[in-house]
Amino acid sequence: MQTLATAFAVLTLLLSLPAHAADIDVENQSSWEIHEIYFSPSDEENWGEDHLGEHVLESGMTLSLTGVTPGEWDIRLVDEDEDVCVLQGVTVSASETWLIEDDDLVDCQAATEE
Rank of each mutant, 00 (worst) to 15 (best):
L11R: 09
E82K: 11
R76G: 12
E96N: 07
L52K: 02
T97E: 15
G48F: 03
A110K: 10
D102W: 08
A21Y: 02
S42K: 08
A110P: 03
S40G: 08
Q88E: 14
I24A: 00
F39V: 13
S95A: 04
T3L: 08
G71R: 07
D107K: 05
S40K: 15
V84L: 10
G71F: 06
V26G: 01
T12M: 15
V10S: 08
C85K: 09
E36T: 12
W73M: 06
G89E: 11
T12L: 15
L105S: 09
S30Q: 05
Q29F: 06
G67Y: 01
L4S: 12
D104K: 04
G67M: 03
T91W: 06
D81R: 15
S30R: 05
W73A: 04
S30V: 08
L57S: 01
L11T: 10
E96V: 12
T6A: 14
T97D: 01
V90L: 07
D102T: 05
W47Y: 08
L14G: 04
S16A: 14
D83P: 04
T97G: 02
I100E: 02
G67T: 01
E36L: 08
N28H: 00
G89P: 03
V10C: 08
A111H: 10
D23M: 07
S64M: 05
L15M: 11
W47T: 08
H51I: 02
E72R: 11
I37H: 05
H35T: 15
S95W: 01
V68T: 03
S64C: 00
E33H: 09
C108T: 06
A19W: 04
D107W: 03
C108R: 03
W32E: 13
E36C: 12
D43K: 09
G67Q: 06
E49M: 11
E58W: 05
E27S: 12
M1R: 10
T62S: 07
W47R: 07
L52R: 03
Q2P: 05
D25Q: 13
T3G: 04
V56C: 00
L4E: 13
P70R: 08
A19I: 04
G89N: 14
L87Y: 14
V10M: 10
S40H: 03
P41L: 10
E72I: 07
L13D: 03
I75M: 11
L52Q: 03
W98T: 12
A21C: 06
T66R: 12
V68Y: 00
E82Q: 07
D25A: 12
E33Y: 10
E114K: 05
A19C: 07
H51F: 12
Q109P: 11
Q29K: 14
F39W: 15
E114P: 05
W47I: 10
P18A: 07
S40W: 02
Q2I: 12
M1E: 09
C85W: 03
T6C: 12
H20M: 11
G67N: 14
T97K: 14
A110R: 10
S31G: 14
G60K: 00
V10R: 08
L63Q: 09
I24D: 00
A9P: 05
S93Q: 11
W32C: 06
D50V: 04
L105Y: 10
V92G: 02
L99G: 02
P18W: 06
A19S: 13
D25R: 15
I24G: 00
E45K: 15
E101Q: 12
V92P: 00
L4P: 01
C108Y: 02
V90G: 01
L87F: 14
D74E: 05
L57Q: 00
S30G: 07
A22R: 02
L99P: 00
E49D: 11
C85T: 15
